[in-house]
Structures are given as C-alpha cells and as structure tokens.
C-alpha cells in the first residue's frame, strides 16, 4: 500500500487474496452445516469474517489467543464438526505449534488451518509477522498435509478440495496483492499432484506460492532471448509431495532450482533435496535452493523483499544463470 491513499482496516480487507478463501468457505458453509469457523482477533484480516457474517452461530472468535483457538478446534472436531481456523501464518505455525502437532496431527483430527499473510507478505510488519518457517515446521508433523497455493484461484481449488480431505491440513496463503499465476479455474487440481505450468527440457524450476508466477516469468525471459527452455513445476502440495514429478524433471532436465518464500532450510527446497538425494540423483543433477538465506528479513514492501532475497523473476532468472553457467541480463535499465 503506497502512502497518500485514504483507507482503513475495513477497506484494506476488500483487497486481500484471502478474500477468495473467505468467499469459498462461505459457499461451502451453505452445503456443509458441519463446517465451523474460528479466528483469533483476525477474522476480518484473514477473511474468515465473511463466513462469520453469514453463519454467526457457527463462528467463534477466540480473541488474541491462538493456542486456545487450535485446542478448541480439536474439541469441535472431536464433537463431529469440521473446523476451519484462520490466523496469520506466523501465529498458526509458531504460537499454536504444539497444539497443532499434539492436538490435531497426533489424533489426526479433521481441522483445516488457514495461515494468511504468510512468507514475507507482511513486509514492513517485520520478523514478528513474517512466516518463513511454517512450511518447515508443519512438514515435520506426521499426518499433516501442507498446501501452498500459487494464487487466489488455486486457493479456491484448495479450499474446495479440503472439505473432502480427511485429517489436518495447513493452507498457506499470502496477503493478497499477488498477481495470479493462473488465468482461470479451468484446470485439474488434485491434492498431492504437482502441476507442470510450463514445459521445458533444459532446466526445471520447482516452485510454490508466489514464486510460481515469478518462475514462469523468468522462464519467459529466457524464451524471449532464445535461451534455455525452462520447465516450471508448481508444488501446491508440499506434503505429501509429488516425488514422481520431481524425479522426472531431474532426470529429463538435469538442472533443478527450487524457489520459495521461505527459509531455504526446511521448506520446499529441503523436501526436493531429500528426494533427489534418496533417488541417487545428487551427483548427476545441478541443484540450487532459492529462498530466504537463513536470516531474519529486513523490512520493506513485499516486492522489495522478494527482490532483496532474489525470489522474484529477476532473482530466479539469475539463479538459473548461475547454475547453468550463463551470462546474466543487464537489468539496470529496468530499475
């Protein structure tokens, strides 16, 4: 949000990507009386507020008490309901961490957690509000499914699919100003099945979340210059991960770059590295993880931070060049 604009919490919330989550959940709510919605003083910001407005009797705001919210979600699931609990990604993954592991994952309860404003999308909110560890944390919990939709449209797909999914699920969404990676909802979506966004024979970018579009644009840059042919794979499900798609890409292209709005430790890059190493491909594949290099981020608007940590189009492009030994573009004119 640039300065000089008059807006309040109310108006801001009209703009967020989470809005799509809110709408879809609200629609699902009409068909599924067993859905209940929970928040922790972030009903408006996370957009679960749409559901709250339509189904007040099935909505519970726990105030600023994330651990209590997740514990209560476990109880509601035990009582036969399907809770959707929404808060910022940082608080879902870290404040309520043990409740998620021990009260949701261990008993394999049917609770869906929506972590909004994840990654660096809270920009100048700083480290306390960034969630760059959440994928890593939740990936290590047995029974947990970890979803990282690439944009608002895919968020809609994930929410719709989540209702029939048995067990706990973390759905990571951004703040909402991310441009879409998809043009329409007209594509096949299955939990656990990676999507090839762009074919390519020379290298593969395996990405999740906002990095998917950035990777596609980096690949497009190469195509425009008659450069290498870059495949882009969207891992919307980081767990259980689509091993076949990853191994196939490694064998066919020989160059793998992972791109994520997350610490390079523990997230998508680590998951892919584990697969490559166990498949015996560690020696034959050129591999690089692009992400936040194990630091607490500086502040700035999300786009500044994406550029700073090179998880944007230009950064991913440069990483591909580094790995493939290509000369980088002179981008000075673009700044």
């Amino acid at each position: 949000m640039a300065g000089g604009l008059a807006y309040t919490t109310d108006d801001l919330n009209d703009l967020t990507q989470a809005q799509i989550f809110g709408r879809v959940l609200m629609d699902l709510g009409s068909q599924h009386p067993e859905i209940v919605a929970l928040s922790a003083d972030l009903a408006k910001s996370t957009k679960v507020g749409d559901f709250f407005a339509k189904f007040p009797e099935r909505s519970f705001n726990f105030g600023i008490a994330e651990q209590n919210m997740i514990g209560a979600a476990a109880g509601l699931a035990l009582a036969g309901f399907k809770p959707y609990a929404a808060t910022f990604g940082c608080f879902a993954s870290m404040r309520a961490c043990e409740q998620v592991r021990t009260d949701l994952c261990y008993p394999k309860l049917n609770v869906k957690i929506i972590g909004t404003h994840a990654g660096l999308s809270m920009g100048n909110g700083g480290t306390t509000h960034h969630a760059t560890e959440d994928i890593g944390i939740f990936r290590t919990f047995a029974n947990m499914t970890v979803m990282v939709p690439a944009d608002g449209l895919e968020t809609a797909k994930v929410i719709s699919a989540s209702i029939d999914h048995d067990g706990p699920m973390y759905i990571r969404v951004g703040r909402g100003f991310e441009p879409p990676a998809y043009e329409s909802l007209d594509y096949d979506f299955t939990i656990g099945k990676a999507i090839e966004m762009r074919p390519g024979a020379d290298a593969t970018v395996i990405a999740c979340g906002m990095c998917v579009l950035q990777a596609m644009e980096a690949a497009e840059d190469f195509a425009e210059d008659d450069g290498p042919d870059i495949r882009v794979i969207n891992i919307h499900t980081v767990k259980p991960i689509d091993k076949e798609a990853i191994i196939k890409a490694a064998e066919e292209t020989g160059v793998i770059i992972t791109a994520e709005e997350h610490n390079i430790i523990g997230g998508l890059g680590s998951a892919v590295a584990e697969i490559l190493a166990e498949a015996g491909l560690a020696g034959s594949v050129k591999f690089k993880r692009v992400g936040i290099p194990d630091v607490f981020s500086v502040i700035g608007y999300p786009e500044d931070l994406y550029a700073h940590y090179k998880i944007d189009q230009a950064g991913i492009y440069d990483s591909i060049c580094d790995l493939m030994g290509l000369e980088k573009k002179d981008r000075d004119d673009e700044h």
Binding site: N124, G125, G126, T127, T128, H129, V298, I299, G300, Y301, D304, L305, H308
Partner: peptide
C-alpha cells in the same frame, strides 16, 4: 517502514 529502514511497524 520503507525498504531497509531501521524503523518498522514493530520496533527492533
């Protein structure tokens, strides 16, 4: 609140 500023929403 700007890029690289020491001053953000939440003081460091």
């Amino acid at each position: 609140n700007q890029y690289l500023s020491p001053f953000g929403m939440h003081p460091d």
